[in-house]
Amino acid sequence: MTTLAKTSPIAPAAKTNREVDTRPLLWPSVGVLFLWMIVPLAMTLYFSVIRYNLLNPTLTGFAGLENYKFLFDDPALWTSLWNTLVLVGSVLIITVVLGTLFAVLYNQEFPGRSIARLLVIAPFFVMPTVSALVWKNMMMHPVYGLIASIQSSLGMQPTDWFSDYPMFSVIVIVAWQWVPFAFLILLTAIQSLDAEQKEAARIDGAGPFAMFFYITLPHLSRAISVVIMIETIFLLTIFAEIYVTTSGGPGTATTNLAWLIYSVGLLQFDVGYASAGGIIAVILANVVAFFLVRTVSRNLQQG
């Protein structure tokens, strides 16, 4: 793991030989993060077991697991979980596959390489509301969009993307934003591939495909798992893209968990129910986080 060697040493012996009380330096950060982690979560947990509707103040009292029961009986939850899974899964597959292929491609020597790389990573720096609106209006609009005019110039019927293929459209937008992220991380990782190792493989007669599958891909595996985990954390709560394009619709076609909680909590003001949904989201994210923390801690301990 030549890539990781530099990040790892955690405690060079020379620096530990002095007794210094570092708590005053450390506690402000630890304290605010602790509050940030505990207070809202405890509130969510509390709200999820009481009857609390902002529109109906007479509804009070301890609800036990009632909110969770409503939630699990509500088909909207299962639809939203499925939609979340489809959205996260598709975007992960697209971004990892394209990110890897792009990393290999843009690692080759060709004229204007650095400029081409800048163009490919650009979408990652575009704020989500801009990306979503550019795609929704200028690319995918059924009448004035660029894709529609290409289709009509070819004599085809223009597609109404957000009505007929709403989830696909959202996936396209989100993938466009996150392919550059995967690409940037994997390109950095690929550049640390040992030239001698590649040379040795070539002398042994490895063709481009054998090189890719036996040298490049194994070398990238750690970076790919990091990409998958970090993207999952962000993708689980995709919100802005849905907010400005489909508003979770048509029907519940693009309602993911984040949108469900938002619409129940802040549009219908059922705090108890939305909080139960929030707890589900926290549990899901924690499962992913567990693996991410494990990977990163392995890096920390490697010396």
């Binding site: 809202p40 979560l41 969510t44 909080s275 929030g278 707890i279 994210a285 992913v288």
Partner: peptide
């Protein structure tokens, strides 16, 4: 790793 939507309501 805390998903923002988990603490949105509070």
């Amino acid at each position: 790793m805390m998903p923002p939507v988990g603490v949105l309501i509070p």
